[in-house]
Design a protein around this nucleic acid. Structure first.
Lengths: 191, 191
DNA sequence: AGAAGAATCTTATCATTGATAAGTTTAACT
DNA sequence: AGTTAAACTTATCAATGATAAGATTCTTCT
């Protein structure tokens, strides 16, 4: 019989994908603290040791999940790159706000392994997009400060995303925001 | 005998301060992952349940540690506030780079309890400094965009700090930095 | 001063976690 | 068809944070 039977290999289907799906579900429904090895395998209906052959350990599983996150982020950024830093920044922050758990995981170096080749490649692709974004403005900028401009953009956008997820921007709005919505605040901040 | 014998109360001295000191040491020497309840109490030479009367649980202890972090950060920022956003931003990022574990802990909402009164107060004081920083420029800025400017500044500074700690700025430097040092990059980015 | 009470701190125990070795079942490949 | 390799389960381990119960020391009140 052909082994090319879709992707359902082995005697329990595509467990690798199933585990990633379970992890993603738990992450979205219950947050990053729910990402235990036992919780994930329980959700997928397999034993707690079933992930070992596919991911080695929990870090391997979460690294694969973060890899998917970087790929999604890059896919969201790519189409708006021609529109420039403002539009791309908004997409970056919106991605973080829509996927707070996943975005947080992508920068939790204690939970993932950045030397994982797939993860390193996906993360690098995202970071290269900021490079491209700045290089598109290169005629307007002196050569020497381009790295600084790139860091400033990534920093601002990333910082806003982190602070938004932590609810610290809302706190800023309620304490002294002059009747602004969060969306308007982001528009102004990314200008 | 007078009970005012320095701060050494009770029959084992000032355990509360000793535990915080042990936690800080472990945090600096071995990183945030070393901040276990048992590791901290072991380092302080007491039993693993000795922290309960002082902090309730591990979250309480780490919240107190984070509170100290916010106070240190505010104390570092205060004297440079008159120099404006550029100088203050540099101090913020330098604080993060010099205390990577502590700074990370201060924004790890899963490890600390932001509703802790002392922590909330200390964190609020820090965030108010950014408000003041922007308000000092108020004549130059239209009233309406001031919240956005404040968010942009805090976001950029915070994002640079986070990315620097994660080593992602070094990665950016080695891949495309035009022979810059990290310090020069920050100078440019904070301009 | 002395007894009652409250707080600190220890000991012992519990449920839960991630990892792993050993065994079982299923698929893959001559 | 039969051997090998991989997936998956079961059982077990060391380690964690929390907590109840007991022991010790400080405080407080008369």
């Amino acid at each position: 019989m052909q082994t090319q039977h879709l992707k359902k290999n082995y005697h329990h289907g595509d467990l690798r994908a199933a585990l990633l799906h379970s992890a993603r579900t738990l992450l979205e429904e219950q947050g990053i603290a729910a990402l235990g090895l036992r919780a994930i395998t329980r959700h997928a209906g397999v034993s707690s040791a079933a992930a070992t052959p596919h991911f080695g350990n929990l870090t391997g599983l979460l690294s694969a999940l973060a890899t998917a996150g970087y790929e999604e982020l890059a896919a969201a950024l790519e189409p708006v790159l021609p529109e420039g830093p403002h539009a791309a920044g908004l997409v970056y922050v919106h991605f973080a706000m829509r996927n707070p758990g996943l975005f947080t995981l992508m920068f939790r170096s204690d939970l993932i392994d950045r030397s994982d080749p797939a993860l390193a490649m996906a993360a690098d692709r995202t970071s290269r997009m900021f490079t491209q974004l700045i290089d598109d403005l290169e005629d307007r900028l002196p050569q020497k400060t381009r790295a600084g401009t790139r860091a400033a953009l990534w920093g601002k956008v990333h910082g806003l995303a982190v602070l938004a997820i932590d609810g610290l921007l809302d706190a800023l709005l309620t304490s002294r925001g002059e009747g602004l919505t969060l969306e308007e605040l982001l528009e102004d901040a990314l200008r």
